[in-house]
Design a protein around this nucleic acid. Sequence first.
DNA 1: GTAGTCACTATTTGA
DNA 2: TAGTGACTAC
Length: 760
Amino acid sequence: MQETDFSYLNELNNVQRQAVETIDGPVMVIAGPGSGKTRVLTYRIAHLLKLGIAPWNILALTFTNKAAKEMKERIESKVGSDAYKVWMGTFHSIFARILRVEAHRIGYPNDFTIYDADDTKSLLKEIIKSMNLDIKTYNPATIRARISKAKSNLITPKAYAANEELLSYDRMQRVPMTHDIYQKYYDRCIRAGAMDFDDLLLQMFRLLYLNPDNIREKYQKLFRYVMVDEFQDTNHLQYEIVKLFVNFEDSPNNICIVGDDAQSIYSFRGATIENILQFQHDYPNVKIFKLEQNYRSTNYIVQAANQLILNNTKQIQKKIWTEQIGGSKIKIFKALTDREEGRKIIDLILEHKMRNHLKNSEIAILYRTNAQSRIFEEYLRRANIPYRIYGGMSFYQRKEIKDILAYMRLVVNPKDDEAFKRIVNYPKRGIGNKVMEQLLASAEKNNISLYESCFDAELTPRARKLINEFIRLIEGMRDKNKNGNAYETVSYIVKASKIADLLAVENTIESQSRLENINGLLNGVQEFVENDEFLGEEIIVNRDLPAYIQHISLLTDLDESDKETKDVITLMSVHLAKGLEFNSIFVVGLEENLFPSYLSMNDPDAIEEERRLFYVAITRAKQYLTLSYCNNRYQYGQIRSNDPSRFLEEIPEESLDTMSALLINPPKEFDKPKILGGLKPQKLKSSNFESKVDISNFKADNPNSLSTGMRVLHIKFGKGTILNIEGSSTNKVAKIKFDEIKDEEKRIVLRFAKLQIIDS
DNA sequence: GTAGTCACTATTTGA
DNA sequence: TAGTGACTAC
């Protein structure tokens, strides 16, 4: 090792430095937004390495792959490639890796598959139906949440069935059979060699707790230094696992947790701030460091955040501060409708970019629910601003990808019933409900998986023949996998399954893009196969198909982000934005019943969580923060009107740009001045923010008066030129090139379209 | 067994 | 509104 150089410690402020240097015993770091939390964690790990601790003796658990990846890269820049030998990753991915080696000790195959939310729901549905229960009463999504919560609280099916409190709750909810469903679901997962997301934690706990072959000691010895990021987001189960790693006789209790109670926004999935309080109780000699200096935002934003969070009753006292005085005040915009909100925000972004010389990548639009993204997407496209939407449908959730993935899963683990169900008749091979019912009955009778039941189920000759062909297909793929690497297997699957052929024959824009996605998947597999990966003491050379499947099962949309570092505007939910920062942030849809969500309205605790969520939203902004709301919004197909969000009132007046009122609609609408933290109604102008298509003046012309070459206005696409018109009188179709729609011209059916002639 | 139609309903956040 | 499930016709 080179001459040890600790000069990097000088790059830290006082508290940060203490948190980094206190490596022995329990440590708790309470870190406000933008206070250098990641910095502390990365420097701390780098420091441990510099002190000669072996990288594989360090366990660092995060909540997102992205956070782990970023930290690894930052540690690498300090200490080199040793960074990659640190056990660093999400709870789920680290535990999945351990279980891939140890699962056989607790009744699962090491090549277990991971059931995602869809798999779980589909299995629950099957179970509920098989019990002759009403699928509407027993909503699979609700049951899933219930089971997930039970698992997060270490309640096994047996414990559930013995828990009078839970049972009576279920009776009150008129779903008394929930415990039975849970038991059946649990058994079916084992039968299928599958773990859901919660099982990755629960089975990890079981492994350590049951302690076969003294396995617990092995990991207690290995992980000499344990760190947990975003501790406020851990649930009970996660904390219990961490304690099993750390607590043993004569343990030095080298555990460091980092978190911010004010940013706890995941209670819906079982996270509990109680863990932070409990931690102080469990480790009375804990050393606590509070990072309160904010290096991210201007004072207006920091003060607004401080004031806002004071409205919560439950919190650890702290006050964040910044040296960055001055800057832009917070702007608030009001719109009449959700569409107008979209239009205004995009207009504002255009102007904002010009005036402040911002790149697209410095701007983000944040919203409470993913459904809100559509309107912004539409106006961004119209304005020709490149953007990227996170959340919603991710690459690995696309149908074509999940189909291929299902083949891969069945190849690796033939007991995977959910994969089986998905592809047994895709592409169509004449195996329908009838045959499926027989297979299910046979599997149930013998307590075997569906695939296993294929071999000896009694079937009609026709079905027998089809099933045998299917078995041959899958066995062929399995052979391929035995001899080749993951890439070769997946290429073979794509070909042999005939999915690629099917899409090629279809030959639509849709199917083309599906084919491209499949190619993208293949490239991903190849990349995975070629890249070695470190973890622990040795290089993980095992880049096989099971490893790949596991890898992508735990990926999220966010993890794809830096693949293309294009200059685009970011659109995402506030939840996803946690941990990120942007120069300019737009938080939209600040209305009662939306943000805060209507589901939290009657629950003070839930309102506090919504407030923390808003706290997270505004503290993402470095320099510019803009908030908006509207009176009327389309929701579930009807217009609803909501009051402005209570959170707007909670922003201190000193932080607000009163000039932004000039851009708000006429006073007539402005009937609740108190909402804006004391803002008075003023003479207002809205002309700056008219859209390119002014809906109030729009008047469609008779389609028969249209002809080639005319300039027309379309209510959705804006101005354009008619290139030609074809078809008979009632079915006329016009080809129109719109000025602001890139690349293709649009084919517009005149019977439906509303076009106004602006120039003939 | 499959494809197409119609009616219904559930509306948050995510590893 | 959009996605899903049940039902019907082939």
